[in-house]
Each structure stands twice: as C-alpha cells, then as structure tokens.
C-alpha cells in the first residue's frame, strides 16, 4: 500500500515533466532506491504494473530500480559502516550514537521517453 502511494507521486511528477518537455510516451523509469528506504522492490513492480494502466503516458513503461547502499556514521569514533550488516550500533566502538548518512532516499534517476 505504501508502494502504491509512492507510485501515485511518481506518476504526478512525470506527468508534469511530460507536459513541460512535450513527451507523449514513457518507455522506462529508473529509480534509485535506498537499501533502508522501506521500499520493497517486488511490491513496487506489482503496484507499478497495476497503476500504469490508469495513466496513458505510462501504460507501456517498465520500472527499473537501482539500489543505493545504506551507510551509517558513528559520532563517537567518526567511523562509517554498512548499515544493513551492523545495524544501529557501531561495530568498531559499540556506540549507539550513530546516524544514517545515505540509504533512505528514493529518487527518480532518469526516464526513457519520446
């Protein structure tokens, strides 16, 4: 359900873009999806295939996703580490004073269109 909401927003952004650039058909949409963005790629694909039929601009489009790795920064030892592997606690100094540097984003990278 969360994926569907996101797709509605992508569709709005692309409709606006298509108006500006006088595009009539989008062949593919490439997203950059952060590893810990909470977006499940399989659900995205399902929701995309359901929703695209409602929008002529996107009706024949393919959704592609590229993963952006999640990286966490430790304020204690100023180390960066892989979020998915180690979680919230810094593997070097065991501090919980850490925050996410990258990995929560979801961007529309590019589209193929005419």
């Amino acid at each position: 359900m969360h994926e569907l909401g996101i797709i509605v927003h992508i569709s709005r952004t692309l409709t606006k873009l298509a108006d500006e650039k006088k595009l009539s058909k989008i062949g593919s949409v490439t997203l950059e999806v952060g590893e810990v963005s909470g977006i499940v790629p399989d659900y995205m694909t399902d929701a995309w295939n359901y929703y695209k039929k409602k929008t002529p601009l996107l009706a024949e489009s393919e959704l592609r996703m590229e993963t952006l790795p999640a990286v966490t920064f430790c304020e204690e030892c100023e180390n960066t580490y892989e979020t998915v592997k180690y979680g919230k606690i810094c593997p070097r100094c065991n501090s919980p004073r850490t925050y996410l540097l990258t990995g929560s984003e979801c961007n529309i990278k590019e589209i193929e269109a005419c």
């Binding site: 996101i6 927003h9 992508i10 709005r12 952004t13 692309l14 606006k16 873009l17 650039k21 595009l23 058909k25 062949g27 593919s28 997203l31 984003e105 979801c106 961007n107 529309i108 990278k109 590019e110 589209i111 193929e112 269109a113 005419c114």
Partner: peptide
C-alpha cells in the same frame, strides 16, 4: 519514434514536499 534518455534526478517526495 525514438526514445531518448532524460535525466530527472528528483526525490519522489519533492513534489509532495
């Protein structure tokens, strides 16, 4: 018609924000 690649580089939340 030939498809061309258009760079968008926009967060999906930008529009809502």
């Amino acid at each position: 018609m030939d498809m061309k690649i258009i760079e968008v580089k926009q967060s999906i939340f930008a529009d809502n924000d």
